[in-house]
Amino acid sequence: MSFKDILLQINSYPDPTSTDAIDQAVSFAAVIGGTISAMAVEVDIPAVSNRVADYLIGLSGMAKDQERKSAEACKAGLDYFTTQAKAAGVFGGVVSRRADLYLVGANVADHARTRDFCIVPLAELTDGQRSVAETVIFGSGRSVLLFRAGAADLPTRELGTVVLAWDGSRAAARAMADALPMLSKAKDVAVLSVTNEKSVTYAGIGVDAVRHLRAHGVEARAVEIDAAGDRIGTVLERYLAESSADLLVMGAYGQSKFREFVLGGATAHMLHNPIVPLMLSH
């Protein structure tokens, strides 16, 4: 049981995805026994409608220059990925598209629908990648793996401890099912439930999830932590640090409407500044 068809999104604007992030994604695919493809989108910046502003500061020319840089970043990123993925024996192909700046996420979501899951590298908090991630989470119907090279690195040698956030909800059940091939590769799986924070979460809620995972050959263990007045996101973050976890699997709570996203509290907390890679399912 393994993932055979992974998609990596390579960003081209405003900040291209780093070679370090590409290296990590390729190595991670090898760790979990998968094949990985990459997709890059050249941005099309909408034409300037204000003639005076265009005349004074040359906005049209600036837009064309940024589009050229995006196209160059796409080619460089895909070329680098191809070399690294072929060397690692996990190359699955490349996809290049051109789209309106505001529709990059929608294009990635479209392609992610026919993949096992999609990897979206995050960079700076304001680089627009969070918007891409949210669009793929809500729009693709597939899991999304988020990481930040240098801060929340993907495991590149082996998959140690994976934490499954479990509250018995539909989203948590979806996340567990989606992650099964990955959980089977982990050395340690902790099914973490936070009690006394939600009325639906009770003592022993993780026991049946552990039973299900063991039925699939995954040796998991149930862990319960009393919230003691803290928010779920804070409790999760603390446990991830204390357990030296390699990855967090959780359901993504929230809803999408007209390209705007309203995230649940725990989802928003973990997305804001992740300390380990996150695999999210909606």
Rank of each mutant, 00 (worst) to 15 (best):
Y80N: 02
M250S: 12
M279A: 00
A133I: 09
L103D: 08
A175C: 00
F261N: 01
T114D: 09
A133E: 07
D188Q: 05
D188E: 10
A268I: 15
R170D: 03
Y80H: 00
F138K: 08
P277G: 14
E158A: 09
L78A: 01
W166V: 05
I6V: 02
L280H: 13
D44N: 12
G251I: 02
G233C: 04
T17I: 07
L180T: 13
R214M: 15
S143F: 05
A73K: 02
E219V: 08
D20Y: 10
A109R: 06
I205Q: 03
T17A: 11
V94D: 01
L56P: 15
S281T: 12
A165F: 11
W166G: 13
T195L: 07
E219I: 14
L271A: 03
A190T: 08
I22W: 09
F138T: 12
F117A: 09
T161P: 08
G77N: 10
V194F: 10
A30N: 14
E224A: 12
D110Y: 11
P155Y: 01
L56F: 11
L154P: 10
I22E: 15
M182V: 05
F28P: 03
M176V: 02
K69Y: 04
D226Q: 07
E224N: 06
T201K: 00
L125H: 12
G204H: 02
L101N: 13
M182H: 01
L280M: 14
I137R: 02
G160R: 03
A21Y: 02
A63E: 03
V132L: 05
P121K: 05
G254D: 12
F138R: 06
H216E: 09
L56E: 14
R97G: 05
E197Y: 01
G254E: 13
T201F: 01
E42W: 10
I10A: 05
A203I: 04
V132E: 03
V200Q: 08
R170T: 08
D226V: 15
E134F: 11
